[in-house]
Design a protein around this nucleic acid. Structure first.
Lengths: 258, 258
DNA sequence: GTAATAGTGTCTATTAGACATTATCCC
DNA sequence: GGGATAATGTCTAATAGACACTATTAC
């Protein structure tokens, strides 16, 4: 007991052997939207003892880099993308035994990309694929360790940040139609938004999104060409609130019926 | 380069000397409201090489405890409080050199207490005091390392959680007046809320707060006795939005005038 | 009585949401 | 033309915010 001191400010010359040592890893939850659905990058290592399990990309933090730099490096190594359009820390994970092989504390980072590019180009020792978030959370994909919980936390953070920050910018390119922007909110929030009201809410106050003048022709099914917009200087948060999750059928208390 | 492997899943028998080792500390931002102002617990260690600097309470994480347990333990050691009314992780700090004495990654926890009790009872080696958050952030109190930034992040998280979670419960006791509850929002958000509208918003839908029937007599200045309330089952988030920060005088663009 | 605090009532401007209507394309 | 998609218009209910007013206490 005397060996341990209160507080984390060890005196000069404090012997590292007197306090516990941990490996620190950074795991990156890389989100993007493909086919109108939210997807996450998962990897599977060929030399992994947990064969068949998919995992979040990640790696050891180095002493001479920041946590964010470590996350950025892992992202680059995994996807070849130089810089994420959004990269922020969302959680820390240090339960004893969560990795049976060592004492490790993992910092979770949320990365959002407009386009994930060619995943196979990342590394020759790693399988990487895009998985719909619903599948990964739903348990249809076996996730290693506590990566399921980490992914859940990341998605919840993305849902919140989409409402309270300019995260939406990271999901779309410099020019976008209001339909594609609406799809971002619908995919991340897992909800449906009225197209007419969405259009009005986005364009009501100038400075959120501004029309560029160019239009995109409709698909083979026809329709009015859609205006292309870009973000204005005032977009700092979603101009609408996230709708509350719909009550499940047959769950929760039932006041009426029967 | 060959010694380092991509990803954090080291093979069995991986040599700990092949990846960097860190000390992991947990720092706890303990918030409470005293005299209608938000306050934070700071400590100053007698044997600290950085004499005169105040710091956030914290300590090393042990391999056999979770991060939250470590935070809870530090909180208990510092304040004698057995359990915080709110305790959640809000950030990770790992910049190289942030603690010049060792490689350390710090996990920040936000703790909220209704009553901080006797701080001096915590330890004989530590001075502890309550400091108004405005003073601590304003630079009027010298904070060690990057603790100023950690504190700022914690306060920002508290502001957000007060709006989106039931954090308000942690600031008041089991019974409270609407004035004291309103003061929680005003102190944390650094704003003023209309008392009449606050009352209506809180009591409009039953299940948020419910009157207990008991009242508290007014002070020496007189006034109508205040009803005491307790939280109902439906209080999961603040029933009002956080007001946007007021634009500073003389700052920002000026469209009119001159 | 006056001052002070708790709580209610009322009015208005804004907003969310539902939904009809118009505009412009493909076939 | 008919179908499909984009964008606008309209209506209603709910809400936020300002503020007047009533209720109950200390002095």
């Amino acid at each position: 007991m005397s060996a341990r001191r209160r507080g984390h400010k060890a005196p000069k010359g404090y012997d590292p052997s007197e306090y516990p040592q941990f490996a620190v890893t950074v795991d990156v939850v890389i989100l993007t939207i493909v086919d109108e659905h939210l997807q996450v990058v998962l990897v599977r290592r060929r030399d992994d003892p947990y064969k068949g399990m998919w995992a979040l990309p990640g790696g050891f933090k180095r002493p001479d880099e920041t946590l964010k730099d470590a996350a950025s490096r892992e992202l680059r190594e995994e996807t070849g993308v130089e810089a994420a359009d959004y990269l922020s820390e969302f959680g820390a994970y240090g339960d004893p035994g969560r990795d049976p092989r060592m004492n490790v504390v993992t910092i979770g980072f949320l990365a959002v990309l407009r386009d994930v590019g060619d995943l196979a180009g990342g590394s020759d020792a790693v399988d990487a694929r895009l998985v719909p978030v619903a599948d990964a959370i739903g348990g249809e994909v076996g996730l290693a360790f506590d990566h399921g919980r980490i992914l859940q936390d990341a998605v919840e953070r993305a849902r919140r940040d989409l409402e309270t920050t300019s995260l939406a910018k990271a999901f779309v390119g410099p020019m976008f139609t209001l339909k594609s922007l609406r799809n971002v909110f619908e995919a991340v929030w897992e909800t449906e938004l009225d197209a007419a009201n969405f259009h009005r809410t986005m364009t009501r106050s100038a400075g959120l999104v501004v029309p560029t003048g160019s239009v995109v022709p409709p698909g083979s099914a026809g329709g009015k060409p859609a205006q292309q917009f870009e973000f204005g200087p005032d977009y700092a948060a979603a101009p609408m609130r996230r709708p509350p999750p719909e009550p499940r059928e047959g769950k929760g208390r039932r006041d009426t019926d029967e």
